[in-house]
């Protein structure tokens, strides 16, 4: 089993993981970082979104051994103002998609601190919320610095 070296939320991890294991699986099963959710496991819903060097990435269809650079999961963004913005705006219903939403939104506001509604709709369209919190998510991102 080839050794896997991963840098996650500022920490270095070394693990023996079979080739072909997804990043999401490593995060959840090996590192215990269960904030990253798996909802479809085939790259269609965005629940597993993490950042790779700041870029939103679907960890369920990313091979762990192919990862180079810094992985940021929701656990690394727990103190991000977006967390409180999501709570304030009631952008959390069942909450299963929420970590992925916040990881995506954090990348969005890092690149553009004042996105328009249109930009939010464009950049967040890959994160499905079945409860339909979308209007609240939009509001949370519009008001994340309040």
């Amino acid at each position: 089993m080839p050794e896997l070296r991963l840098r996650v939320n500022g920490e270095e991890h070394v693990a023996d993981v079979p080739v072909g294991t997804s990043l999401a699986q490593v995060l959840r099963e090996r590192l215990g970082l269960t904030g990253t959710k798996i909802a479809c496991n085939e790259g269609h819903c965005g629940a597993c979104t993490v950042q790779l060097d700041g870029v939103p990435t679907l960890s369920c269809i990313t091979l762990a051994h192919a990862v180079e650079g810094e992985v940021t999961t929701i656990e690394g963004l727990r103190d991000h103002p977006l967390v409180q913005a999501f709570v304030r705006a009631d952008a959390v219903q069942c909450g299963f998609c929420t970590p992925g939403q916040i990881v995506s939104a954090a990348a969005l506001v890092a690149a553009n601190p004042s996105p328009t509604r249109e930009e939010i709709r464009h950049r967040m369209a890959g994160n499905i919320c079945r409860c339909g919190t979308y209007p609240r998510i939009e509001e949370a991102i519009l008001t994340w610095r309040d």
């Binding site: 727990r78 709570v87 304030r88 069942c94 909450g95 299963f96």
Partner: peptide, 16 residues
């Protein structure tokens, strides 16, 4: 009223 356990869910701490 904002949601009880909203922060736990948003921070990925809630255990499903």
């Amino acid at each position: 009223a904002v949601r009880k356990t909203g922060p736990e869910r948003a921070r990925g701490e809630a255990r499903y």
